[in-house]
Design a protein around this nucleic acid. Structure first.
Lengths: 221, 221
DNA sequence: GTGTCATTCAAAAATTATGTTGAATGATGT
DNA sequence: ACATCATTCAACATAATTTTTGAATGACAC
């Protein structure tokens, strides 16, 4: 059957894309690139990997069409080719969250005590916000924040959190949120805030779920 | 930093899912399973692989939470765990179609002559249908067909095509469509139909694009 | 029970991916 | 031209995946 060969060839192409995502280091690189264009050595620093290694991973991602390189002086900046890459990443994450018990286990074990990691529900947060009792922090990158966020939330990207701690009122309860239920950024933010003595909790979901629940969203021009 | 380890662990879980998709054979198995539950040896026959090999691939998919096994007498039937798996697969396919030039090349070369593979546009198809000149075949699995299809189309799943050839009027032009622009099923259908002497062409897109263009969709109860 | 069939398991061989090292390239500044 | 820095390349060692083979399990029919 002359049909079999090109079909296999197509599957191989699709597999190249999936394979590129099939490595923890590369997934971390993608999550960093989701926040904007980054140079090889910035990525290496953030991910804690040797530069040559990161360079090779980036080329695997480039061969799969997931990232693009662009020279800027001495540096080569990589960026995600477009938003479909992010939605593919989200798709992988969502399937893993849905089907792998191990993901649950890891999230459960994220904090030592169980009740302290109990997330805040949307309804609770909405009520506390009405009473003015809570500081809401959106830890996503500014571009995502600009496209829609919980009204009254302040944007403190995870990377800037340490530097911007002085802005935050230590006497108010803090609720942090990010992209989705188990997006690691809000976990990291809450952990970092607690280490510094703040009373912080996570919103149970991210912005997409907030929006989907019909709650108001604020857009920055 | 006590935060780094669980983050890595989560990436590893996500990587398990992506890795499971990162193999041409497994992608083929998934596409077969998209049409319904299948036994190991049916899958082995369809994919042209040794049974033990298929069994192992299926277990990789099971560990990634993409498929579920269920014993039925002598057979073990595997099925996709749910629709999120299909949308993950679609996401991979769409990124590959969008970013990999090689995919274009393969599709271009799918048929020897270029003009014979020229697909029918939505508008052309709509016009030919009004004139009653064309038989429209939806080659997707029945469950997808039931949820919406081009009005007047008949559902001949790819698997049943050979058996149901007698139903098809050989004097009318045939247009086949499936899930999307480069979903392999309609290519296979057209190739099979041509081998049997039918005059067949592909619709340029699949049902989602047809729907998105505002053209009518028929739903079966 | 015995035989048969579908599937899984286990171990080895073949292939492919990953991490590491040091040298090569390309751009910048002196 | 030279030195410097960011990145890539090439080569190797290591580890993981895939395929193959043959034996083991589990279910059914007799």
């Amino acid at each position: 059957m002359s049909i079999r060969k090109p079909k296999q060839a197509l599957y191989e192409q699709f597999a190249i894309v999936a394979k590129a995502l099939g490595n923890p280091q590369r997934l971390e690189l993608i999550e960093h690139l989701a926040q904007g264009a980054r140079s090889v050595d910035l990525l290496a620093t953030k991910a804690g990997l040797p530069i040559a290694n990161v360079s090779q991973h980036l080329q695997t991602l480039r061969r799969a069409g997931l990232v693009q390189a662009e020279r800027e002086g001495k540096f080569v900046n990589y960026r995600l080719t477009d938003d479909t890459v992010l939605s593919l990443f989200a798709s992988v994450r969502s399937v893993a969250e849905r089907h792998l018990a191990e993901v649950d286990r890891i999230v459960q074990g994220y904090f030592e005590t169980r009740d302290s990691m109990e997330p805040v529900t949307r309804e609770t947060l909405a009520a506390r916000m009405r009473d003015g009792l809570v500081t809401v922090i959106d830890v996503r990158p500014p571009d995502e924040f600009a496209l829609g966020h919980v009204p009254g939330a302040i944007n403190v990207p995870l990377a800037d959190l340490q530097a911007r701690l002085p802005e935050i009122d230590p006497d108010r309860e803090i609720v942090a949120y990010c992209r989705g239920p188990w997006c690691v950024m809000s976990f990291e933010a809450v952990a970092a805030l607690r280490e510094c003595g703040f009373q912080a909790r996570r919103l149970e979901d991210g912005l997409p779920e907030w929006k989907a629940a019909g709650l108001p969203v604020e857009v920055t021009m």
